[in-house]
Simulated assay, not measured.
Amino acid sequence: MSKRSLHPRSLAAQAMGKIDPLTKGVVTPIHIATTYIRDEDNAYSSGFVYGRPDNETIREAESVLAMLEEAKAGALLFGSGMAAATAVFQALSPGDHVVASKVMYWALRAWLLTEATRWGLIV
Score class of each variant (00 low, 15 high):
Met82Ser: 12
Gly74Glu: 10
Glu56Ile: 11
Phe89Leu: 15
Gln90Gly: 07
Ser63Trp: 02
Glu40Gln: 06
Ala66Phe: 01
Phe48Leu: 15
Glu60Arg: 12
Pro94Lys: 11
Ile58Leu: 15
Asp41Gly: 05
Arg52Ser: 12
Ala73Cys: 07
Ala91Arg: 14
Asn42Asp: 12
Val49His: 14
Ser46Phe: 00
Ala87Met: 09
Lys72Asp: 15
Asp41Arg: 04
Val49Met: 11
Tyr50Phe: 10
Ala87Thr: 14
Glu62Arg: 03
Leu76Cys: 13
Gly95Leu: 11
Glu40Asp: 06
Thr86Ile: 11
Ala75Leu: 00
Glu70Ile: 00
Leu76Ser: 15
Ile58Val: 15
Pro94Gly: 12
Ser63His: 03
Gly51Trp: 14
Ser93Arg: 13
Ala43Cys: 05
Met67Glu: 09
Lys72Glu: 15
Ala84Cys: 13
Ser45Glu: 04
Ala43Glu: 07
Ser80Trp: 11
Gly81Ser: 08
Glu40His: 02
Glu62Trp: 02
Ala73Arg: 12
Tyr44Arg: 09
Glu56Met: 12
Pro53Ala: 13
Glu62Tyr: 03
Gly95Gln: 11
Gly81Lys: 13
Arg59Asp: 09
Ser93Lys: 14
Ser63Leu: 08
Ser80Arg: 11
Ala43Leu: 07
Val49Asn: 10
Gly81Met: 08
Glu56Phe: 11
Val88Tyr: 10
Ser46Leu: 06
Gly95Phe: 12
Ala84Gly: 04
Val49Trp: 15
Ala61Pro: 01
Phe48Ile: 02
Ala61Asn: 04
Thr57Met: 07
Gly74Asp: 11
Ala61Lys: 03
Ile58Asn: 10
Gly81Val: 05
